[in-house]
Design a protein around this nucleic acid. Structure first.
Lengths: 249, 249
DNA sequence: ATGATAGTTAATGTCAGACATTTTGCAAGA
DNA sequence: TCTTGCAAAATGTCTGACATTAACTATCAT
């Protein structure tokens, strides 16, 4: 677990917290298992107890570990993790191989939420929001053909975050933090066919247009279309595209 | 601001953090203003620098304040607050007079999200989820007539949280934390007319029934109906109940 | 006068060591 | 067997000193 882990390049407290967090997020440490003692971790990473405790405090506030005096630290269950904490998003985004179940959960959320978000954006956006969207879209188009996957992903993140921002709602805005880890995790496994990228671009453009023209229902459907292909790949789409009554038990 | 603030009854670090946080959340300290120095706060609350720094660390992780060495601490803007942090929810829920704008923002989110949440719940809930809902509903009914507003609110929270849980999605679940502050803040100003309570109960029951019968679309509409009255009171409802295309700029 | 520069001050960040508190397990005794 | 008490081990807290950073200030050269 942690024995084979590389110490952080930067010796800062946040960097140390990221290393420890990723040991849990990568799925190696089962829920309920004991987390190493302070003393051992201090020696392992050659840091003072103070710094280490600061790092551990981050793991506690994000719900990754639970500490009790006299007892020790243990890894908490996935259901207790604060996935919406921005710190958590950073850690997840930097993960080479995030837990596929986590990726699915987050994407399932986006699939159910973003159509509504786009609808709200179409009702509440202003010129500033549209400028951000256009800028991000231009960036996506500019990095589509070439092999600049990383930069393309960043513009992709900026585009979707722009939609969340355009709702002008404090809560939805905060949720935009989830986008980076979600998008970063998915570009690893996507094909990057030229035609698929063109298609994806066109779908993004339709969302932007609907928001610009203040067509909430169109924006909702366009946002859904953006997420559909990946959702199908992840096995998240039901057979019937529209939910019907009398769903079987 | 903090000079006239009562020290926490319990001397624990979380309690101290709550006191400091509420000084900001109550809206007294404007964004960008300086937060008191460690030294002063230590004297004011008669705690060691260690405890105080722990408390301040909580304010930093929730995005309430920003600290830089040599410069000091300042209050951050509302848009930077991590409203989805469970700690934040606790602080908000304990607030006697939360900022009305914040209450509105959170409720506006719920109004746009909970119909979708109920729809998901109708598709994914199991017996355990339904038992929780029934239990909470029974609690609501049992405390409706009498003057047990506090307990009624708690059952109300449990009911809505049960819906979020029933989605069986990690992200939506986390969002259930927002319910307590939202509901607690709103019972203060609601009328508690007997007929209004009866009506509210009936609307809740319909949501539960739709989830039990696995009728997603019905659940969606029922959830919307639950939120509608309060939304109107808060001025969040548009004139036309269904959004139409060509929304004017 | 102005601008760069070095020193001063005041705030937060870090360290080290001792001590306090809590939990757990063990062991002796009623 | 149950209880009580003790000892060990972990996290939590306190204290004082020092490090680091950022803003301010005074000085000096141009």
């Amino acid at each position: 677990m942690l024995d084979t882990l590389a110490p952080p390049a930067d010796g800062s407290a946040p960097a140390l917290a990221a290393v420890l967090a990723r040991a849990i997020l990568s799925g190696q440490m089962p829920a309920g298992s004991d987390f190493p003692r302070e003393k051992d971790l201090c020696e392992r990473f050659a840091v003072s107890r103070n710094r280490l405790r600061n790092a551990l405090a981050s793991l506690v506030t994000t719900g990754l570990v639970e500490r009790t005096a006299g007892r020790g630290s243990r890894v908490r269950d996935v259901t207790d993790w604060h996935l919406l904490d921005p710190m958590m998003s950073d850690w997840l985004a930097g993960l080479a191989h995030p837990d596929p179940r986590l990726v699915r959960e987050i994407y399932a959320f986006r699939l159910s939420a973003e159509p509504q978000v786009a609808e709200l954006a179409a009702m509440a956006s202003d010129g500033h929001d549209l400028a951000r969207l256009e800028n991000a879209f231009a960036g996506m188009r500019g990095t589509a053909a070439s092999g600049l996957h990383q930069q393309h992903a960043e513009h992709d993140v900026a585009f979707h975050q722009g939609i969340y921002q355009a709702t002008h709602n404090l809560v939805w805005r905060q949720m935009g933090h989830l986008l980076r880890p979600s998008i970063i995790a998915l570009i690893q496994h996507s094909q990057h066919h030229a035609d698929s990228l063109e298609d994806s671009l066109e779908r993004h453009r339709r969302v932007m247009e609907a928001i610009r023209l203040r067509q909430p229902e169109t924006a909702r459907q366009a946002a859904r279309a953006v997420l559909e292909r990946t959702a199908t790949d992840l096995g998240l789409m039901p057979e019937s595209t529209s939910p019907t009554e009398g769903y079987p038990a």
